[in-house]
Amino acid sequence: MPLLTRLFIRAGILFFVGSMLVQLVNAFGWVLPGITPVFWHLLIVGWITQIIIGVAHWMFPGRVRNDAFKDNYPLWITFVFLNIGLILRAITEPSNYYSENIILDILIVISAILQLIAVLIFVAVMWPRARPKKHKLTKK
């Protein structure tokens, strides 16, 4: 299993635990405002989508066998941006209900843009790899 896949899956599992922790806290009645969308995004983006990205990188044809950053940097950027974006969201979205601080608003926007860029890069990398195994990519 390639290094990036292991990282995506481990990060995904941490988000899964985080989302279940949020549910546990809710069950005790300590409901934070704005926590429900955070829960769903930790689960769907942090856990399921991240597992999909990791396994797709591993299983789809055309993977560069080398784990080095220079050979896989677009997906490294996806990994970093997606995780930072999601963590930022998980912190700033509930906090925004308690504070009028404009920094929180800016961080929410940064989190949204980081996640968008991460997904655009992921699709750009994986689109040509969704192909028959025998079909070789042509170098330009």
Binding site: N96, Q115, L116, V123
Partner: peptide
């Protein structure tokens, strides 16, 4: 590939909604 297209559309709308929260 069509799932990828829906992913981009979905995350695009999600980005707008999240920016609107800020």
């Amino acid at each position: 590939r069509s799932a990828f297209i829906y992913l981009i559309l979905g995350i695009g709308i999600g980005t707008l909604l999240l920016i609107d929260k800020g």
